[in-house]
């Protein structure tokens, strides 16, 4: 089982490496969206500092959601997804492999570049650290929940907009506690509670989302 997960991971990472452009594009999208906000609301430092956690998290949500189109759809088109369903390994394991590689390609880069963007918004050091930690715990949840949405909308017409409609409302708790943790540091109350809850969401979605996604994939292939 672990071997099968390893193979899916290896294959998807190799494919992502051959198509580096897609990964870079999602990252550039994130940077652009975040950079547009000061242009929209004005360059006043204190206001930007207040907005920064929300802006960064919303942009992360959108970037993650956009990259969901790459999770199953290409495999669905060329028939490799069909073969995965017939792999003789539990589908949940293979789904897990795909979700991990999706996070490594879409979530992790956001975590790494977020401090840089936080500096643009004049976030202090401790807030930057909490921002990174919250993204580190929160973005895997986005990939996990997103995998359910991507599987449900597989091969459906207008799936790009539909997946946003399905997934974004489910992202609300992650957004609240992700952005809230940074805000809590700024207001001096400490971010532990927020981060613990984010961790709880991660645990819950780790347990449930791969099953839901696997079930949705089987339904989609019928």
């Amino acid at each position: 089982m672990i071997r099968a997960l390893g193979w899916v991971l290896r294959r998807d990472l190799l494919l992502a490496f051959r198509r580096r452009g897609d990964v870079v594009n999602a990252l550039v999208f994130f940077v652009i969206v975040v950079s547009l906000f000061p242009l929209g609301v004005g360059p006043e430092a204190s206001q930007l500092r207040n907005m920064a956690p929300g802006v960064l998290w919303v942009a992360a949500l959108l970037a993650c959601m956009l990259s969901l189109a790459r999770l199953y759809a290409p495999d669905h088109q060329d028939g490799t997804l069909e073969q995965m369903l017939l792999a003789g390994e539990p589908l949940v394991v293979l789904v897990m492999g795909k979700v991990i590689s999706h996070w490594l390609m879409s979530g992790l880069p956001l975590v790494l570049i977020a401090p840089l963007l936080g500096l643009q918004f004049d976030l202090p050091g401790d807030a930057l650290a909490v921002l990174c930690v919250s993204l580190l715990i929160g973005t895997p949840v986005l990939s996990l929940i997103g995998a359910v949405g991507a599987a449900l909308t597989l091969g459906v017409r207008g799936s790009g907009v539909l997946v946003a409609l399905l997934v974004l409302p489910l992202y609300v708790p992650v957004l609240i506690f992700g952005a809230g943790s940074v805000g809590a540091v700024a207001s001096g109350t400490g971010a532990e509670a927020h981060l613990m809850l984010l961790g709880g969401f991660l645990a819950l979605s780790l347990v449930l989302a791969p099953w839901a996604s696997a079930a949705a994939l089987r339904i989609a292939m019928e």
Binding site: V156, G158, I219
Partner: peptide, 30 residues
Amino acid sequence: FLYIGFMALQAAIDDQRRADKAGAVLALVG
């Protein structure tokens, strides 16, 4: 938004059986 998502998903899938099952998974996740 959750209700609208459920209805939009069912409306977007042509195959009735699949629409039922996909909607059910979404409703349970919801």
